[in-house]
Structure formats: C-alpha cells, structure tokens
Amino acid sequence: MMKRMILAAGLLLPLSAAAQYDSTYGSTYYRQKVTQFNLIPDTEAGEIIFLGDSITDIAEWADLFKNCKIKNRGISGDMTAGILNRLSEVTRRKPSRIFLMIGINDLANGVPDSVIISNYAKIVDRIRRESPATKLYVQSILPTNDQFTEFARHQHKEAQIAAINQQLERMAVQRGYTYVNLHDALCDSEGKLSTDYTNDGLHLKGAGYLVWKSILQRKKYL
C-alpha cells in the first residue's frame, strides 16, 4: 500500500514524518510576490535588501530611510524554508547589504528551534557563497504581546524566541555576519512587545519602525 506523502520545506516526505510540524510556505500571496520579484530587472548596483516575513513586508523601507536603493523582499507569512526557496532571486542581485529577519511564523507552526537554526545557517552559508561581497545583518526575532488575540498561535513563544536569538548572536561570530538586537528595544517592562509599537501583538505600528530605523542608523549599519 502506497504511503501518503506531503510536500514540506520543498521535500516529499511521508505524512507521519511531516506531521510533526508544518513548514509549508507556498501560499498564493507568496507565489504572487515571488513571481513579481523574479521579473524585476537587476539594473541597480549597490541595492540594500530587507528580507523576511510580514514584519518586513509591511514597512515602506525606501521612504523610511529616504533611500531608493532599499528594496523590500518581505512576504507575509514567510518562513525560513520559504526564504531558502526564494533566496536565489536575492543573491543574484549581488546586493551591498541584506537585512534578514525571519522565524516567528516557524514558531507559530511548531517548527523546532533546531530546524530554524539549521535553516538560518543554510541561508547564511548560501549568501556567503552566492554573493560573497554582501554585508549580512541578521536581526533578532521580535517579541510578541498576548494581550491581543488576533495572532494567538504566535504568542507564548518567549522562551523559544530568547533561545533562538541567543543562538543567532553566537552564530554571528562563527559565520561572519552582524547580529542586530532589535528585540530588547521594543519590549515593555514585562518583556512583551510594547503597546506603543503594536496594535495586534505581532506586527509593528509606525513608531516601532522608527525605533528599528534609529537602531540601524545609530550603529551606522545604514
């Protein structure tokens, strides 16, 4: 009798193995954005790419920094496996800098910390191999706030977020990228995403992006 199979993280796996967690990323929105990105000509030298999920996708980066070289490669709902799947479109542009933030949707879908870190390592190694002159900035996973109920699956991940961020910071030395701690600047006194910066417990309001901008500018990363 043929085993039931499922497509997860680009691999055809037995259903029993894949059911441990959900690493699928290929929503209609994901495919719409990727096809658009792939058709944008690579005509500008020195691009700066913000790469990630909806937290990146929402921002008007070029306007925020008054820099037309900044390109938004955020896709709402994306995960580490989705970044790996579409990374070639980013690296073929040979950007001067990449600012990466990804992982909260992995946690919401039950992807183990070890898989998230392994995927991060693969992303970093591919960027190093495919675009060696690019400066890479890995930004911490942000806190959430369970006062809001809209994104319940993303809540109560504080311990995992802290553990992954610690590993990402350690890995920066090993793999030669810059780790950017945005997490702490956006927390309230209880370690949750401050209501000054969010209205749904997951995504940022304008004030949150201004904090993000100020950190990158203060550290002279942009």
Rank of each mutant, 00 (worst) to 15 (best):
E130R: 00
R126P: 08
H156S: 11
A18W: 02
R218A: 14
I98E: 06
R93W: 00
A17D: 15
R126M: 09
M2C: 14
M5K: 12
T80E: 08
I161F: 02
D200H: 07
V90Q: 06
N72P: 07
D22N: 08
G10L: 05
Y21S: 01
P95N: 04
L222R: 08
V111Q: 06
K135Y: 09
G176K: 08
D125H: 13
D196T: 13
A17W: 13
L182M: 10
P143W: 01
A207N: 12
N85A: 14
A17Y: 12
V34E: 03
L107M: 02
I127L: 00
Q166T: 13
A133V: 09
G74N: 05
D196R: 14
S54G: 07
S114W: 11
D200W: 06
L51G: 03
C68D: 15
S131R: 05
R153L: 15
Q20N: 14
P41W: 03
M2W: 14
A8S: 14
A159S: 12
V90A: 03
Q139V: 03
W61Y: 07
I123M: 03
D146C: 11
S54N: 03
L11T: 13
M5V: 11
L193Q: 01
R93D: 04
Y21H: 09
A45S: 14
L39S: 15
R97A: 10
I215P: 02
V173R: 15
N119M: 05
G10V: 05
K205E: 13
N67R: 00
I117R: 02
L204K: 02
R128Q: 09
K219I: 11
T80Y: 06
R4A: 14
K135D: 09
Y209E: 00
I98D: 01
Y120S: 01
I141T: 02
E150W: 13
T24K: 06
M2H: 15
I98P: 03
E47R: 04
M79P: 01
G206E: 10
L136T: 01
K33L: 07
D53K: 04
S88E: 14
T80P: 06
R73S: 04
D188Q: 05
N109L: 11
K66M: 14
K33Q: 10
K157E: 00
T43H: 13
D113Y: 13
K205F: 12
L39G: 14
A207Y: 10
